[in-house]
Amino acid sequence: MFEMVVSAFLVGGVLCVLGQLLMDLTKPSFTPAHVLVTFVTGGAILGALGWYKPLVDIGGAGATIPLSGFGYTLAKGAIEGVSQRGFIGIFSGGVEAAAVGIAAAVLFGYLVSVTFNPKG
């Protein structure tokens, strides 16, 4: 189990370095929002091509915690949705697979925003 922690560190670290290079080597108008969108889209495309799964097998959380993992989950869900439910699965599969993440983000985001005040 411990090896998984080490490889999660390495794989996650490398993905973050990619994100950093994406920011530092592009124009300043490429903001953190652009980085997140690039990662989620990239993860979904790589997931669809079947290239992201090996990374998840090696890196575990190192591949699922970065936002590319969220994209991977969406794409994987869409494919599974189609296999199980056919046409309607195109639309339901992705969101269903990512539902826990989306719900957690909305709920925790709202609760924390209402509870705390910005420090500035």
Partner: peptide, 20 residues
Amino acid sequence: HHDTAERQYRLPTEQGGQRS
């Protein structure tokens, strides 16, 4: 005011990230 200007012109003050 630092905090009014940041949120009008740039990013929320609590958003993590690097200023150039």
